[in-house]
Simulated assay, not measured.
Amino acid sequence: MRRVEHVMGFPVSLRIDDEEVPEGLADAVFAWLREADERFSPFKEGSEVSRLDRGEIAPGEVGADLTEVLDLCERYRVATGGAFDARLPGRGLDPCAVVKGWSVQRAAELLTAAGVRRFCLNAGGDVVVAGGPWRVGVRHPDDAGRVCAVLELTDGAVATSALYERGGHIVDGRTGRPATGLLSVTVVAPTLTEADAAATAAFALGPEGVAWAARREGCEVYAVDTRRRVRRTAGLPLAA
């Protein structure tokens, strides 16, 4: 079963290789992703995030899901010494760097809970897989038509933060300026929640972020700095 929809501003593709797929499961996966976008996008005026930011609801009144997201944001802010921050000065609350990976991981857990054994869920290039082996390409930071590495995973997630799609959109919360020093950071982790947030946090930290991400439990890292040097951890699951 294969399906693609445009959600959260990027294409999301779902591939399930099991012989039997529970009826309505794909619908439930994409419905959840659309719900997450409506509830947690800072770009939608009626979202819970926007209402919280405008003071229409108090911090103690937010739902359990948003509480979890904000707790994750705070955890990464503390862990990076403020380089990763969902509340940058002069900007509204923006938890997108956590919401994407967290919500797609939740979608993957819907698949697992339904008994699906082999799947690949790709959200704008950030991927969570089960029942591999699966091969995941890492885009070359200078050439969209090439890959600079191919990873092989059985179960787990891969996320990349880079300059090539949106330019200097990742801000170092310590300086308030776009992060510098890296062209791309790819993190392999047990969940997309961790992979996505760790990749963004590492990019925000700059060159020191590679070692920071490598120290996180279960994480492997592939990074390209602005001098086109590759830095990777020894346990990175490169395909043969």
Rank of each mutant, 00 (worst) to 15 (best):
D85I: 08
G181K: 02
R91P: 03
F43Q: 08
S103P: 08
E194L: 15
G55W: 02
D71V: 11
R174H: 07
V98I: 15
E23S: 14
G60W: 04
V147D: 11
R87G: 07
L111D: 07
V78D: 09
G101W: 02
E35Y: 13
D172V: 09
C219I: 07
R228Y: 04
A97K: 05
G60C: 08
E61Y: 03
L52Q: 08
D142L: 14
V104C: 04
P190Q: 03
R231L: 13
S103T: 08
A31E: 13
A162I: 11
R232D: 01
L93M: 10
A202K: 06
P190W: 00
A36K: 01
W212V: 09
V138Q: 01
V147T: 13
T193G: 10
A144S: 12
V187I: 13
G9I: 06
A199V: 11
V150Y: 00
P190F: 00
A204L: 10
E19V: 03
E217A: 15
E109R: 14
A83V: 04
A213K: 07
V224D: 01
D85T: 09
R75V: 07
V147F: 09
D27P: 14
V147L: 12
E45S: 15
A234Q: 09
D142N: 11
L121C: 05
L25D: 00
E35R: 15
D143Y: 04
T67S: 15
V78C: 01
